[in-house]
Simulated assay, not measured.
Amino acid sequence: MCKPPSHVLDLGPWLLWRRKLRPGKGEGFVQGGPQRSGSGCPFPSVPAVLGVLSSSCRAELLCPPALPSGRCQATRMLLADQGQTWKEDVVTLDTWMKGDLKATCLYGQLPKFTDGAFTLYQSNAILRYLGRKHGLYGKDDQERALLDMANDGVEDLRNKYLVLIYQNYDEGKDKYVKDLPAQLKPFETLLKQNQGGKAFIVGDQISFVDYNLLDLLLIHQTLAPGCLDTFPLLSAYVARLSSRPNLKAFLASPQHTGLPINGNGKQ
C-alpha cells in the first residue's frame, strides 16, 4: 500500500517540494509527471498526468520536461527507498528569474523543504533532517560523527565536480578524470574499515550519507565510465545499494533516467 506523502521538498534550483495530506483520508499528491509505482510509491517525472495508485493514495504529477536532477536526487533516493511519497512543485526558470519567489527564500536559493508547518533550506540540512526522522543517522555519537565526516567528503568531491561541469569542463575534464582515483580512495578506505566493505559507509544500517554518496558515484560513472574499476568495494557498494527494491524501482523510473544531471547539458 502506498503511504501518504510525508514531505514536500524544494530540490534543485527550480524545484519546490511540499507536504500535502488530506486529514483523515490518507490521500497525498505528488507533482512531477507520469507516475511509476515501485512498491506502491509514485515517482514524479514528465509530463502531466493524473493517476490513481490505490484506494488510499492518489498521485497528481505535473512537471515541465528537461529539468536537471541536480541536488534533488539524493533526497529523492532517500524518500523512495524509505517508502515515502512526496509532492513536488516545479518552478520554471522564468518564474525564478522574476525574483518574487527568490525573495521569499531564506538564502535566496533552493532547495526548500516543508514538512507540515516546518520549513527547511539547504540540501544537506534537509538530508540530515530526514536522516534523523527516519533513523538514518547512526546509532550513537561516534557513528554520527563518522557520518558527518563522510558526508563532508562527499560534498568536497561534489563541489569539485560542479566546478568542472560549470566552469572548466572542456579544458579540465581530462585532468579531473586522471585525478579522480585519489578523490575516490577515501571512500574505498571507509568501506574497508566497516566490516570489510560488506555493509554501508558507516555502521550496519543505511544512512542519509549512503544516498548522497550513491548519487555522487552514479554521476561520476556517467562522467568517467570505469572510474570504479580499480575500487572493488565501491563497485560492489553501488551494485548492492542500487539493488534495494524501492531504490531499484526509483533508479529505473523517469524521475532518474529522464532528467539531465546538470543544467548546462554537460555530464
Rank of each mutant, 00 (worst) to 15 (best):
H134W: 14
I165N: 04
P65K: 01
L67T: 04
P111V: 06
E155G: 14
S69I: 11
C57H: 06
E143I: 06
Y169L: 04
A145V: 06
Y121D: 14
T95I: 12
L101N: 04
N168R: 03
Q167F: 11
E60W: 12
Y169G: 07
M149P: 05
F43P: 07
N124S: 15
L67G: 04
H134R: 14
T85G: 09
M77E: 00
F43Y: 08
R76Q: 12
D156M: 08
T104F: 08
E143D: 09
L127A: 15
R58F: 08
V91F: 09
S54D: 09
R76F: 15
Y137W: 12
L162M: 11
K139L: 03
H134E: 11
F43N: 07
M97H: 13
E88V: 10
P47M: 10
K87Q: 08
Q73P: 03
Y137S: 11
A145W: 05
T104V: 03
N168P: 00
Q167W: 04
F43W: 08
G99S: 14
Q82C: 04
N168L: 01
R76A: 08
D152C: 06
Q122R: 14
D100E: 11
V46W: 15
T92E: 06
D94G: 15
Y121R: 02
C57Y: 12
R58Q: 08
N159K: 09
L146R: 14
G138T: 00
I165S: 01
Y161S: 07
G135W: 12
G108H: 02
D170L: 05
P44G: 00
D115G: 05
L147G: 04
Y137G: 00
G108S: 07
S45R: 13
L147E: 01
P64D: 07
Q122S: 13
K133P: 12
A48P: 06
G138P: 02
A59R: 12
Q142K: 06
W86P: 03
T85D: 15
T75A: 15
D89C: 06
V163L: 07
Q84N: 08
I165F: 03
R128G: 06
R158A: 10
G99C: 09
Y161G: 02
R76S: 06
F118R: 13
V49P: 04
L62S: 15
A103R: 15
G83F: 06
A74V: 07
R76T: 00
G153F: 07
R71Y: 15
P68A: 13
L110M: 11
W86T: 02
A48G: 10
L146N: 12
L61T: 11
Y137N: 06
G116K: 08
E155C: 10
G138K: 09
R58M: 11
Y121F: 15
L147Y: 03
G153A: 00
C72I: 01
D170Y: 03
D152S: 10
K133S: 13
N168Y: 04
K87N: 13
V90I: 14
D156L: 00
L62C: 04
L157P: 00
C72H: 10
D115N: 06
Y121M: 12
L164W: 05
P44R: 09
N159M: 07
F118I: 09
W86S: 01
N151Q: 13
W86R: 00
